[in-house]
Design a protein around this nucleic acid. Sequence first.
DNA 1: CCGGTTACGTTGCAACTGCAATGTAAAAGT
DNA 2: ACTTTTACATTGCAGTTGCAACGTAACCGG
Lengths: 204, 204
Amino acid sequence: MPKRVDHRERRKLIADALMRVAAEHGLEAVSLRHVATEAGVSSGMVQHYFRTKDEMMTFALSVVHERSEARVTRAVGALGDAPSPRTLLRTMLVELLPLDESRRADGRVALAFLAYTAVRPTVAAALHQETAGLVAFVAGQIRLAQETGTADRRIDPERAAAGLLAIMEGLGVYVLGGHYSPETALTALDAQLDLVFGPDEPGE
Amino acid sequence: MPKRVDHRERRKLIADALMRVAAEHGLEAVSLRHVATEAGVSSGMVQHYFRTKDEMMTFALSVVHERSEARVTRAVGALGDAPSPRTLLRTMLVELLPLDESRRADGRVALAFLAYTAVRPTVAAALHQETAGLVAFVAGQIRLAQETGTADRRIDPERAAAGLLAIMEGLGVYVLGGHYSPETALTALDAQLDLVFGPDEPGE
DNA sequence: CCGGTTACGTTGCAACTGCAATGTAAAAGT
DNA sequence: ACTTTTACATTGCAGTTGCAACGTAACCGG
């Protein structure tokens, strides 16, 4: 075994550069050479770690999701032991909104990939499970809140969960596009939580 | 004045071709030549009607919006004289959802443009007004429903409107990505309308 | 010390890109 | 009839693209 290098680390280095390029100029500006120079390496090296551009894109897409997942688990973990379902969901959804510059950058990349995968159905397949898992989790939290009497029992948890995630996504898109201000998005999100859980409970 | 041609018509012809290309292969596949062959014309003609690619893109973007606007006004117009705010809003939002193939194609293009404009803030400026107008309209309908007692008065119309539009956008994105089925999106939308207007009233 | 494997860097190429330039045909004004 | 303006089509060009090919240097088991 000659010249041992951490393969995953290099790939992440390159993927990070890709995301920087994509966040600033859009996915269509992502080329092997452009990413390479942004990463400060030769384009040959990029080719060494990704045999094709599509392989690189797919990997970068997975990194985007790992990142936001890590963000969410960290924020939720900081909540303490047994947060209320509403607090937990709010924390989670807020963390997925592009409210500061770092999350805006990630969001731009995610949005670009969204459009990208919409045309390449094979790449999108992996995401379906993820979304389905998210919906199930949110629905579970809503159901939990219903059982403990902190949410309206007439609401169907699955539909409310699908709606909550959709509203988060839509708010994110509008914030990225500059149509909504971060404040508008936050109040809209809280209004939605009010609708599901009833008003009153402290937000954060 | 020699050889009179309907300028706008030609431009729309080209823009239609652009949208077909974008819907099938994504915006990054849109090039002068590609659009030209799709439209069945020479690339020189495309250049004649759009001096720059960006001009072509901007025009296509405006066509996308005109199209969906026309779709909405047609559907709403078919409702008859004085539809209830809920029926009106539902009709409008449903029309903006990518539920059939033709709307899916439009939606893919719109999504691509969303990512496109997120990196080119100058192009997005025009859209802000449009969204703001939409929010105001929806809020007005909600307020109207509140006054006639067909909607919960404790709800803030502006926030509910922002939420309603965001959920529509999010549902659209998820349906396009294949994460939600059209049925899921529809029931989620109706659930949301239930939350705002209260249950019971006939859906359509 | 040596063959082999890995990790790159460099070069090259065919295809494509946006766009400018040039050419041509036709219709309208004079 | 002649000029001008419009409506295209063709060609060309410099730059960029993804990718293959080749070269080389380092490292390691033998």
